[in-house]
Design a protein around this nucleic acid. Structure first.
Lengths: 342, 342
DNA sequence: CTGAAAGCGCTTACAG
DNA sequence: CTGAAAGCGCTTACAG
């Protein structure tokens, strides 16, 4: 801090640094922006001056000049309870925050609960106050992805945005492969009457995991019985309700593949209440390997989604887009984690 | 969008609006900033021009000029799992986001997991890139509150920051009163051997709720038995462990007051595993009325923390501070919510 | 490698 | 009530 004429503290500017270092402001700026075309002597003088003055760049001024904001939005466009209830979300948010921190880029979390929010935030984003957007919004029919893409905003979605083809970059887990592996695991455990509780069928995780389930039934020569499949909503209570419906429709099941750990936790609850034991009477396989998997008894056998890699890829791709590169879709493998429930 | 000489789209500026409206840029700016000293005719012309051009203010330019950023940080300085696991956090974050949205102020969520993060973020904040901070960090010994206060950053904490006296504005629930009410409720239900699982005793919620528990025991003429009190960590698994310890130390308890719903959910789990029924053998009273209260069976009787009001007050006070006013501490009442567990 | 200067898009006294 | 102008703190061709 330096003290101005009126005695008020004022953060040091590039001008103070330049004066202190005995160079021009241009030289200080060049030092700040990569140090190209700065002589060793000038560099040392500027470094010392920065230390002495405690200079920190004013990002508003920089942004005004460069047209970039050096910040990124993490935009959620679903009812918020859903995200907050789901431990996956936290892991993803944290991963992205950490990766961006490595580039000294702050992450602006934006919650678009209502259509009103959505409009305000879209306007905010498209008016250039953010360099790019990490989008978490799996449902089809959500206009945000298309709007942002049309406005030319760098954008990476978590999960393939349905209905946008390959127009929007995304990072997703190998849902279908993962579902196959889980169902094969249930079969390998001797189960034959395997039910499934899916995610919402207007999401890729909803349809793809169901497809994987059907793949393996066919592979094993087992018939596909619609009474064994109930649609869920990725929520804990939704899992409970779906399990009760499933039990009513098919009381003879010996296993259930549930499309998310959070729902699976609800399923285990419902099964216990119906007097079934897990895994003895009914094996339960989850998906995610989120915190929900180990918070329930018995701990869930599940498919691990590589959220660390997902967030790392999302950030990498977004930064690449901001730098002007083209990016596409990335699919990352899942991994079977065997615990007690199946 | 207007098109510049080189054919690239460029967002309209105040200059475009002024030209379109036939007034000076100063007049447009005055219109934008409250409309004082703008004639009705000029106002109408500017409004029309803004509509026609699709003008949106460039916040970087505004901030550079005003020295304000018109954004606010929501800063978390604890291990993140804790926050994300706890539904209270989500409610608080959402409430603050919504309140700030009413003022068109975006909320920057900042997660300070490591000391390194903490330093980087403190520097970021103190260099003026944010007008104020909503701080969630209950533990004493956390240097962030003091650092920000010393730097003169507007600051409102959620919960009273221990060790800072009344130097930092905060919003808190009436922890002690709430604890008293819960313990009275347990007594009214005929319980006499009431255990307690506290929050961390270096947090105000930890010590104050314990104090309320002791108040009511004394009031009822019951002895205070240290064997009935176990310290928890506000986490679900911590609640389970604490319950097992409590059961080992005092197998004859007929009730437990647990300082958070999330811990209480773990407690119910542990009690069930030990063969106790809730509430028949042991009544369980929680605190928060968070989502955890109804996600467990039996649903928790608990003390509702008014998170909507808490977030509203935090935002109100922060904006007041930013406007140059002084604010102090605010304590909001809690409310008994009777469900099935006690 | 370096400095002088224009420019980014606003706001805000100032003079009228 | 209004316009002309300075200034916020940077970056970046440009000329040297």
């Amino acid at each position: 801090m330096t003290t101005s004429a009126n005695g008020r503290r004022r953060p040091p500017t590039i001008h103070d640094v330049a004066r202190e270092a005995g160079v021009s402001r241009g030289t200080v700026s060049r030092f700040l922006n990569g140090g190209h075309y700065v002589s060793p002597a000038a560099r040392r003088a500027v470094e010392a001056a920065i230390r002495k003055t405690g200079y920190v760049v004013n990002r508003h001024a920089r942004s005004l000049s460069t047209g970039r904001s050096d910040s990124v939005a993490f935009l959620l466009t679903e009812p918020q309870e859903k995200f907050f209830e789901d431990p996956n979300f936290n892991v993803l948010l944290r991963g992205c925050t950490e990766r961006l921190a490595q580039h000294d880029i702050p992450l602006l979390l934006m919650l678009a609960a209502s259509d009103d929010d959505r409009r305000r935030l879209t306007r905010y984003i498209t008016s250039g106050h953010v360099d790019g957007v990490l989008l978490v919004s799996s449902h089809s029919g959500d206009p945000v992805a298309a709007e942002l893409r049309d406005a030319g905003i760098p954008l990476v979605a978590c999960g393939k945005p349905l209905g946008l083809g390959s127009k929007v970059s995304y990072v997703a887990a190998a849902d279908r492969d993962g579902a196959q592996e889980m169902v094969r695991h249930l079969l390998a455990g001797g189960r034959r009457r395997i039910g499934m509780i899916t995610g919402p069928l207007d999401t890729p995780g909803g349809t793809d995991r169901l497809a994987g389930y059907r793949d393996v039934l066919a592979e094993a020569g087992l018939p596909y019985d619609p009474a064994l499949v109930v649609e869920g909503d990725y929520r804990r209570t939704g899992g409970e309700q779906a399990a009760r419906r499933l039990l009513a429709q098919a009381p003879d099941i010996d296993a259930v593949f549930v499309a998310s750990d959070l729902m699976a936790a609800g399923v285990v609850n419902a099964l216990h209440q119906s007097g079934r034991s897990v895994p003895d009477d009914i094996a339960v396989g989850g998906f995610d390997d989120s915190a929900a998997a180990t918070a329930v008894t018995p701990a869930l056998t599940t498919m691990r989604q590589p959220y660390d890699r997902i967030s790392a890829e999302m950030v990498r791709m977004l930064l690449a887009q901001i730098a002007g590169e083209d990016t596409a879709g990335v699919i990352l493998p899942t991994e079977l984690v065997v615990r007690d429930s199946a």
